Simulated scan of single mutants.
Amino acid sequence: MHVVAEPCSGCKYTDCVVVCPVECFYEGEQMLYIHPEECIDCEACVPECPVEAIFHEDNLPEEWKHYIEINAEESEKCEVITEKQEPLADN
């Protein structure tokens, strides 16, 4: 499973959502989340993220491990996102 981590917070680039073949990205107010049961680990999104915020859970830096649970919880509450939108900030 892939996870969106801290670097996405406050910028919310959506380059990743347009390449996702299973539409597993969900949009929160400050960042995007990946639904853990919908992600097929194709890794198409990883090189598309300009802030390098997407990691396979096995490669997630230790200080961001809590994002596994955050992605699971928040993806259940948010709307799916499939189209590119303006980011919150230019990083």
Rank of each mutant, 00 (worst) to 15 (best):
K77L: 13
C24I: 06
G28N: 05
P50N: 08
A44T: 15
C8D: 09
E43W: 15
E52C: 12
E37R: 13
E74T: 07
E76V: 09
H56S: 10
V46Q: 06
E29Q: 15
H56G: 13
G28K: 04
E6G: 12
V18Y: 09
V80A: 06
P61Y: 03
Y33W: 03
E83F: 12
I81M: 00
G10A: 00
M31E: 07
W64S: 10
C78M: 10
C39Q: 02
D15Y: 09
V46N: 08
C8I: 09
L60C: 04
L60H: 04
E27S: 12
C39N: 02
P21C: 01
M31Y: 09
Q85W: 09
E52D: 13
A72L: 01
V80K: 08
K77M: 13
V3L: 07
L88K: 07
E52F: 13
V4F: 00
I34S: 01
P61D: 04
A89N: 11
E86W: 15
W64C: 12
E29G: 09
K65P: 13
C20R: 01
M1S: 14
E69M: 11
E23F: 11
H66E: 14
P50L: 08
W64L: 10
F25P: 00
P50Y: 07
I34G: 01
E38T: 12
M31I: 14
E6N: 11
D90T: 13
H66W: 14
A5V: 01
C39L: 04
D15M: 07
Y13G: 04
S75E: 00
